[in-house]
């Protein structure tokens, strides 16, 4: 009896999970299928479930029509520098806010928090003006710049630092550490999961940043993947199969990264950080 009810329960749970997985997968599968259709078939009503003939040429066409090598390079450059920048600046700022007493500390931290409460779009124009006056419009530098600091990261890592017992720092002081050595040898290693979580968030956010690159950069070969693909979306018509094929080409590096870092990724998002 016991066995039976638990099997039933398992079945129910699995059914629910399978339903969820399918729901999440359908749009993705639809993208794969559409990428192999002709333009005409892709807009047919009612839609066909399977392409009549597999149009592999969509992939070749989109690859040839867009500078994908530049897209990849821009995307990875943007992700790399933003991750390095935001981790470095957030960690140092967070440590100061968490552990160093200085006048105006709480007010300053309040100001950092306030920037999180303002919709990001409001910053687009001032940020553009800053970049423009630096004479850096239409460059990799312009893509990276606003993303190298993070109020969220500062807030997140401050929480991690606050969770580290003060005695550890005092022990380090007695062991002969300077402030910087405490930060480097004791505090950073103990916030590893926080740093990983922040890196993942920053990378994800940079990956899907569409608006900022479109605003600040104009040349196609200065675009990252997301914004570059957007150029396939014409004002009057869109070649859906090519857009989907482009998306397929764009997506695989992220998929590989996800598979490689799956564990950290899920931990980071679940936020079970502080236990080392």
């Amino acid at each position: 009896m016991q066995f039976k009810t638990s099997t039933k329960k398992h079945l129910a749970v699995h059914a629910a999970l399978i339903l969820g997985a399918v729901t999440m997968l359908v749009p993705f599968l639809w993208m794969v299928i559409t990428s192999l259709k002709t333009l005409a078939e892709s807009t047919m009503v009612p839609p066909t479930l399977w392409p009549e003939t597999l149009q592999w040429s969509n992939y070749a066409d989109v690859w040839n029509s867009l500078p994908f090598a530049a897209f990849y390079a821009n995307t990875f450059g943007m992700i790399l520098f933003r991750v390095i920048g935001s981790v470095f600046f957030s960690a140092t700022a967070a440590y100061a806010f968490a552990r160093i007493e200085f006048p105006g500390r709480n007010v300053l931290f309040g100001l950092v928090l306030v920037t999180m409460m303002i919709p990001g779009q409001l910053f687009l124009i001032p940020q553009y003006e800053i970049v423009a006056r630096l004479g850096a419009v239409d460059s990799l530098f312009a893509l990276v710049l606003p993303g190298i600091v993070s109020a969220f990261g500062t807030f997140l890592l401050r929480q991690f630092f606050l969770g580290i017992p003060k005695e550890l720092e005092e022990a380090a002081v007695l062991d002969g550490c300077s402030r910087w050595q405490i930060f480097w040898h004791v505090m950073l290693p103990l916030t590893r999961s926080g740093l990983i979580a922040l890196s993942i968030f920053t990378a994800l956010f940079a990956w899907k940043d569409l608006m900022w690159p479109l605003i600040v950069n104009t040349s196609l070969d200065k675009m990252p993947l997301a914004s570059g693909l957007a150029s396939l979306q014409g004002q009057y018509s869109t070649n859906f199969p090519q857009l989907m094929a482009g998306s397929m080409i764009a997506i695989w590096p992220m998929l590989i990264l996800f598979v490689l870092f799956q564990k950290q990724f899920i931990q980071g998002v679940a936020g079970t950080g502080s236990k080392n």
């Binding site: 005695e167 550890l168 022990a171 007695l174 004791v186 590893r192 080392n276």
Partner: peptide, 13 residues
Amino acid sequence: IAMVFQNYALYPH
């Protein structure tokens, strides 16, 4: 000087 703390304060990592 060297000090021993009540909760040991060993570096966990």
